[in-house]
Design a binder for these strands. Structure first.
Length: 542
DNA sequence: TAAAGGCGTCG
DNA sequence: CGACGCCT
């Protein structure tokens, strides 16, 4: 026996605490192998076994396979009996201190007759959901389960063979594992099933998106794009921008980015992004991404912010008040703005992409009405992602100008007339709703709303922008984007002491115009000292 | 450490 | 008018 004592320097925290006979038999087996066993962190050293300074503490998830869906932050916090801190990342500090492994680490180690490396059995903390309601219920259920099961079997049969059977089954499994290697494949299969499924989901996702991305670093770009979108949707706009800029840097490389050291030297890539690049290359996963996607707080903020007119402040406020679903919001929030109500009404429609071909249809439809029924001298362009050549668009952006017309009230009147025509029954109420209230006498040069091209279609977001002719160049740049491109060239302007907006290019200090009449974009590019870029080349960062 | 800029809506 | 959100 002495030579088989492999866990001599180990201290196991067994979670959750299971009191079934089989669990206790297992615990005794671990102890025979030299391990000290506890059920939570705070009881270490309180029992007969004292912690030695060289003891390696390992948190072992018992019955991992059947519990994996139930494990979340509150579950672990409660099991480990640690101080609860509601910040999303508090578990990280524990994990840094003590490894968390699935129980097959013990099983496989026993089979191998030696302690196997923890890494390959490590429980991925990034999967841990922060979800108090589910886990509280589950913990209650769990604490009863084994006693309940035993009681039922005892009632069925007073001699208790059922109990014995449970015990035999579980210890059998372990003994089989110890005794024979023929089970090795089965164990492997059983325990890797779920991970394989995760990988397949990821792969499908990856394949779908990677159609649009090629090059030696497409995997990194894929993950960084996911991170960018995740951060955008929870209101972390600087992180969003930084990821997009990093993608821009990486997508220019013609060689695969392999190491931290290579990455850190590149512009727009700092320590944390370089580490993530290394993680992606090693594991083909990004734990932070899975954390964000599975964290109840982040996914709820994400959900709320997809409502038009709900930003980070309101989403956080709702989250803090305990709201978790769109239904909660509809029922319990009594001060929704009219735009937010529309955002909920059209939640699905406005979160769907629009095929490029449909945008073309809208363009033809609006152009026709504008020229025939409003003013034949108008010039009408589709902007945004459409002008940048993308196959799908988030919305429909229409810029309208009139040659040599700088009269804003005339332009406003044109817009009012156009909108009222598009709202009319003559055109099947094409405009369904307004997000910027532009009445017939509105002086606004903008209109945002929802529109319907035909009965079978979805309601689409449409934006109109009336532009004085002298502002056309700056407006074309602004309304073409993308957002990151705009920020980059505006930053270039700042560095030259200038200010670039949709109105024009001015001197930062005096506010005077740099260019009197900038009808075209090229003049502005020239003044900034940068080469003209076609709209298709302004898709910065994915 | 800094990070784009203008404008509409709400209270 | 400040805070918030939206547009690229």
């Amino acid at each position: 026996m002495p030579e088989s004592v492999i866990f001599l320097d180990y201290l196991f925290i067994l979670v959750p605490k299971l009191v079934s006979k089989s669990a206790i038999v297992k615990r005794q087996l671990y102890e025979k192998q030299g391990a000290k066993c506890f059920y939570n962190l705070s009881s270490i050293g309180k029992g007969k076994d004292q912690k030695n300074s060289n003891d390696k503490v390992v948190i072992v998830l018992q019955n991992y396979k059947s519990l994996r869906d139930k494990i979340n932050k509150d579950f672990l916090v409660k099991c480990l009996d640690i101080e609860y801190d509601d910040r999303s990342f508090s578990l990280k500090s524990i994990v840094l201190k003590y490894p968390i492994v699935k129980n097959d680490w013990i099983v496989e180690s026993l089979k191998a007759g030696k302690v196997l490396p923890l890494q390959q059995f490590a429980y991925d903390i990034s999967h841990v959901r922060v979800d108090s309601e589910i886990s509280q219920d589950y913990l209650l259920e769990l604490s009863d389960r084994s006693t309940k099961a035993r009681k039922i079997s005892e009632i069925k049969n007073q001699d208790g063979p059922a109990t014995k059977q449970i015990k035999l089954e579980d210890t059998d499994e372990l003994e089989k594992a110890l005794a024979s290697l023929s089970n090795r494949e089965k164990f492997k299969r059983d325990n890797q099933d779920n991970d394989d499924e995760d990988d397949e989901d990821l792969l499908a996702d990856y394949m779908a998106v990677s159609k649009n991305v090629s090059g030696p670093n497409k995997e990194i770009i894929f993950f960084f794009n996911k991170m960018a979108n995740e951060y955008k949707q929870v209101g972390e706009s600087y992180k969003y921008v930084n990821y997009r800029k990093a993608i821009n840097t990486i997508s220019k490389l013609d060689y695969p980015l392999k190491t931290y050291d290579e990455a850190i030297k590149l512009p727009n890539i700092g320590k944390s992004l370089a580490l993530k690049i290394e993680e992606i290359n090693k594991t083909h996963k990004l734990s932070k991404l899975f954390f964000l996607q599975n964290d109840i707080k982040y996914s709820t903020l994400n959900k709320f912010m997809k409502i038009y007119s709900v930003g980070p402040t309101i989403a956080k406020n709702w989250y803090d008040r305990g709201y978790r679903t769109i239904e909660d919001i509809e029922k319990k929030v009594d001060n929704l703005t009219s735009n937010q109500k529309l955002g909920i009404k059209y939640y699905n429609d406005w979160n769907s992409k629009i095929p490029r071909e449909e945008v073309t249809q809208h363009y033809e439809f609006v152009k026709n009405i504008a020229l025939k029924e409003v003013d034949s001298k108008l010039e009408i362009f589709i902007m945004g992602s459409y002008r940048r050549g993308l196959p799908e668009c988030g919305d429909i952006d229409i810029l309208i100008t009139k040659k040599n017309c700088n009269d804003k009230s005339e332009l406003a009147a044109i817009l009012s007339k156009l909108i009222s025509r598009l709202k009319s029954k003559d055109h099947n109420n094409y405009i369904q709703c307004s997000l910027i209230h532009s009445g017939i006498n509105s002086k606004s040069l903008k209109f945002y709303g929802g529109c319907l091209i035909n009965e079978n279609s979805k309601c689409r977001r449409i934006d109109f922008l009336m532009v004085p002719y002298e502002e056309l160049g700056a407006s074309l740049i602004y309304f073409t984007g993308n957002d990151i491109f705009n920020r980059i060239i505006r930053t270039i302007a700042i560095k030259k002491g200038l200010n670039l907006s949709n109105i024009g290019l001015t001197f930062k200090k005096t506010g005077e115009k740099c260019i009197e009449n900038s009808h075209d974009e090229k003049t502005i590019f020239d003044y900034l000292g940068i080469k003209y870029r076609n709209p298709e080349d302004r898709n910065i960062g994915y």
